[in-house]
Write a protein that binds this DNA or RNA. Sequence first.
DNA 1: CACAACTCTCAGGTGGCTCTCAGCAGAGGC
DNA 2: GCCTCTGCTGAGAGCCACCTGAGAGTTGTG
Lengths: 232, 232
Amino acid sequence: MSERAGTRILVVDDEPNIADLVATALRYEGFEVETEATGRGAVDAVRDRNPQLVVLDVMLPDVDGFAVQERLRSDGRRVPVLFLTARDTVEDRVRGLTLGGDDYLTKPFSIDELVARVRAILRRTQPHEASPERISYFDLEIDEATRDVRRAGRRIDLSPTEYVLLRYLLVNARRVMSKAQILDHVWQYDFGGDGRIVETYISYLRKKVDADGVPLIQTVRRVGYVLRHPED
Amino acid sequence: MSERAGTRILVVDDEPNIADLVATALRYEGFEVETEATGRGAVDAVRDRNPQLVVLDVMLPDVDGFAVQERLRSDGRRVPVLFLTARDTVEDRVRGLTLGGDDYLTKPFSIDELVARVRAILRRTQPHEASPERISYFDLEIDEATRDVRRAGRRIDLSPTEYVLLRYLLVNARRVMSKAQILDHVWQYDFGGDGRIVETYISYLRKKVDADGVPLIQTVRRVGYVLRHPED
DNA sequence: CACAACTCTCAGGTGGCTCTCAGCAGAGGC
DNA sequence: GCCTCTGCTGAGAGCCACCTGAGAGTTGTG
């Protein structure tokens, strides 16, 4: 975490709610974050502050995100970009993005997914930056690169939502997370339903992860859920 | 990757988009890349920087690519060249190129094909450069030199696109690749369609590659495709 | 010029994933 | 022990990602 203290990230979105949401989440992860609302401001901010990564909305009021990237390129800046796009804008204009270490995420996204992408990009561009590809607790392990999930060496198949939920619990192993926290991190930020969906997905996970072996997914009544060994 | 860190490549194209595309892709592979937009600039850059390989557009505003090559030869430079040509130009003038360690690629090309050619040339000219001609996973193997594809020893016939797609999955075995990534790397850079073509070609590949034996080409719903043994 | 190979589009069908809901079980308070 | 509240889980609806066969258009070849 402390290695991350010097890592500057610029977040560019004209919706203050989204910019705040993303900035807050990234600051909590230990990054230094600044926000901009316009393409023009983004170009200036990159010049001034020289961030290691830009989170960039494609739909901006003045210059669109792709133009901002080209501007940065022609400036000779090699800063990698994580684009935020609407679902229907994606297919056609995203071509070529994944070549240079850039990536994209469709709105609405989940915070945990955003953080995971940010980490993945920084891992590629700053290899010395310590942020492990493998996360494990007891006999449960996740490989971020291959999306492999293993319990005692045996491979487990998870759906996307199940995977993000388990990763969230694993990263916060031994810490009780409330249903509200889980909803905020794992589900898309515009999710309208209530916390009962978390119960459902916990149930799915238990069937797959805790099927054999000690149960690692624990309920803490009226508080939330933890990933923890019963005797730990 | 680290052996490649000292390998300098010069990219010469007067269209900035193409030069950027190629440079970005090669940098991502770990090469040191510089770009030039003119034949004259290319000759100077080769003198100054002494690259191990030149990627050279045949159609340049001032001196054409072949003339640049002759100029380099008469300078006593033995640097190998990968020519980029339009489909309808100069099929005849390109013949005989492969004798000198050179090669060519017709525009529009796919990034993965370009990278493969670059690797092949460097393999020939810098034999110590570690980059295997054979790539294999489980009982599936391909030979880059002969374009042989074998499953459990049995030869498999693939169309050009099928081959590039399979090679991409094979190089990234056990890693889930999104349709966007596949499109960016495997299809020609000017392809206008959407990701459904990937589904079609995955279907073709399955019929040929996974016809007998365990299915290696796996769908990860809402994420992408992987080449992976089911129990691995 | 006919034929074969290849690329790409499209539409119908299928199944996986997400989410809702209701009934049940277990924990904790009294 | 009884009651209430919280959480668990099976069933199922709806959506949409994906699969595949058919065919059109193009290019290469004998």
